[in-house]
Write a protein that binds this DNA or RNA. Structure first.
Lengths: 208, 208
DNA sequence: CGATTTATGTAATGATCGACACAAAAATCA
DNA sequence: TGATTTTTGTGTCGATCATTACATAAATCG
């Protein structure tokens, strides 16, 4: 390569991974520049030169999270053999990823910015959009299940997708409260127990 | 009454209600003294004289929340005719209370302090304990259902309670993301669809 | 080599955080 | 009335927030 100027003295990818973990554990607003520079092992001018600002660093941390943790949770969904297997894999992967001893519990995308605030509202809106995309992605996979004859065309796949994503988001709270992997798996199994009742025609009461 | 000294010039109960709503909307750390004094219509020395500190004000707001919103969500649970009716009432009340146009979406107890932080960790621990009490309360109501013969003695009532509380906590996230009352009710119905499968003996796979 | 470019460490910016000192105001008590 | 007690409004405390000036260090280019 041989680029001009003094070379960077730290590993940018490693520093980003550290930053991601701090945001994950403490939230966007709850993370201070002091927290970040301490965890990344660099001074603030280096952080600004490499990542732009706290908000831009967070956005790059979001990408890193999607590529690593997000992939581990969601990776099995698109190629799952059935719609049920996709949902099952999604929730069971969640139970595992949310309870690793070396990583913060729960989900970065769900927990990082839940409250409206002037100086973080763009971040919050981004996260809301990402969560909506999760519902849309699961709905799309369920729609495949309708095409495959696994799910009734009468079923409300949007509602089913929203339900399972809601359970997964609740698991973030539970993980924060100290729930074990086994407990999260039991929650996932309970949620999956509704499946047979959901994939048929909707009950008459729903359209009344 | 006739107490000594200059009388308070503001309504303490009304000011507490305003403070509760600010904490509810913006979270504990996300709420500043400036936010509070503006919403309550008083200056900070009056706030400190009447409520002690930001943390003590929050704790009193928590009590107020439990007595009003909490009661509206939970009130029907203890006296419900059946265990199923209790859970149904819990989730349906939640869908209504979480989506009132004049109030912040979602639950104060669930959303206010999810991240560990030095100057708010006692508050966070209190909220964790309150959420654990919710699970314990629902479990106790389900246990009554076991006694009444509605639920199999083999069923894992602790897991069932944790599952339904998890769904309700996920509904807080959904409400924050703009879900409507109808959408939350659909989530609740989907969660309730698991009920028949949950109240029998646990599947063999669960104990393997 | 000297000139240029980029990164680093120190230190400081203005803004905001929660909390409080202080004195004036408004009530009761003697 | 004067003494006592409590609240109110103004102003400010040190600490911390995200961000950046500035000078120095370390690399490449000519």
């Amino acid at each position: 390569m041989a680029e001009r100027g003094r070379p960077r003295a730290f590993d940018k990818e490693a520093a980003l991974a550290r930053a991601m973990e701090v945001f994950w554990r403490r939230g966007y607003e709850g993370t201070s520049m002091t927290d970040l520079t301490a965890a990344m092992g660099i001074a603030s001018p280096s952080l600004y030169a490499a990542f732009g600002s706290k908000e831009e660093l967070f956005r790059q941390a979001l990408k890193h999270y999607s590529a690593t943790e997000g992939e581990e949770i969601w990776g099995g969904v698109p190629g799952a053999p059935t719609a049920f297997a996709a949902v099952e894999n999604y929730l069971m992967s969640t139970a595992r990823v949310f309870t690793r001893r070396t990583k913060p519990p729960g989900c970065l995308i769900v927990l990082s910015a839940l409250h409206p605030a002037e100086h973080s509202d763009r971040v919050r809106q981004t996260l809301i959009a990402m969560r909506a995309e999760t519902v849309a992605g699961l709905k799309a996979r369920l729609q495949q299940g309708v095409g495959a004859g696994e799910i009734s065309p009468q079923a409300d796949v949007a509602a089913i997708a929203r339900y399972y994503v809601t359970v997964q988001q609740g698991m973030s709270i539970q993980a924060r409260d100290g729930a074990s992997r086994r407990e999260l798996e039991a929650i996932a199994r309970a949620a999956l127990a509704a499946w047979p009742a959901l994939i048929g025609a909707p009950p008459a009461a729903a359209s009344a």
